[in-house]
Design a protein around this nucleic acid. Structure first.
Lengths: 175, 175
DNA sequence: CGCAATATCTCGATGGTCGAGATTATTGAC
DNA sequence: GTCAATAATCTCGACCATCGAGATATTGCG
């Protein structure tokens, strides 16, 4: 694996992008009195809403990799900030549904909107075949990372298992 | 900006990749008794070493966006774990050089090595023109994020300025 | 020398995260 | 129906990463 390997250079470049995006999120967090975890939670909640998935504390915790105690505190913060609302699930009353309030959408868009806009605009300079290439690249990188994470979680039981993950991920249950 | 906009889909996909990579790093952290910040620091330190840059606490703190107090504690942790060594700069004795110990390289490679390997291997399925397309994409995304971050830092003085960033970034000073 | 700028570190306070366990609701067996 | 097992969320106490403010040491300028 030569240091001049173009593939390796691209992997490093991908990491540089993630570093930039993390710093961008941290900037957003610090500016609004949120913590990095809150921002990550907000992103997942907005994603869930966009895809019509039901968000619950347990689901959110598993997405973020934090345990139930931290998730409760996290939702408390988001609720106190007026970004989400707790709502008992009428079907399964053990559950709590996390309803994203309009304030959260406004806040998220005010910060990430311009960034996303610029990125989408930049993508217009890519023709269809190039877009397909980028998509293939991103899908491959995402899947490799996800697969290795699942692999390491199983095989690497030497150290502690980190958190109490239900492991269960509920998909869209018909709204 | 339609929800079916292929550019927008790719931006979301890019975010999905960063989420996976962050979770991967968190997994690594939890398994080795490190904190997410420690992992980020380790990555920057290994990068600096690879590029023959001099790492100091101040430089590291500015890279991570944390203040000097946190940086001191961070370096204390890394030193206690035997990953780095503090060494007074003989030229400017206010400075401390952070020397990455072999243990850090071994540790980092043991975890990120296989992931990087798989990614690099996957990149072999891209021909030269496709690699160039991916590179153009990643460079554009990185630069947009960096530019917006700089832009927001200046204009958005409404809230607090977060940390005491020297703003100074020392490049390779001839080793 | 005095003085400002720079680099790092110290201190006390805040609060996010964790493990363990409590609480409430659901499910299935008898 | 009752009981135990499971599940989803929350409470509690402890730990420690991060922060702001300020201390300490060094450099460079005049």
């Amino acid at each position: 694996m030569d240091d001049q390997d173009p593939g390796l250079q691209l992997v490093h470049l991908l990491r540089a992008v993630t570093v930039e995006l993390d710093l961008f999120a941290a900037e957003f967090a610090g500016r609004n009195g949120l913590h990095p975890t809150d921002v990550r939670a907000l992103i997942h909640l907005l994603d869930a809403r966009r895809e019509n998935l039901r968000a619950t504390p347990g689901w959110l915790g598993s997405q973020l990799g934090v345990n139930s105690a931290s998730t409760t505190a996290l939702v408390d913060r988001l609720e106190r900030l007026g970004l989400v609302r707790r709502e008992r699930d009428t079907g399964d009353r053990r559950r709590v549904l996390l309803v994203v309030r309009d304030e959260a959408i406004t806040l998220g868009w005010s910060f990430f909107g311009p960034l996303i806009d610029e990125m989408v605009t930049e993508m217009r300079s890519f023709d269809e075949r190039e877009l397909a290439t980028v998509r293939r690249f991103l899908l491959a990188m995402r899947d490799i990372a996800a697969a290795r994470r699942a692999h390491d979680r199983d095989s690497g039981g030497s150290a502690r298992q980190k958190a109490d993950q239900p492991g269960e991920r509920q998909e869209d249950q018909g709204n």
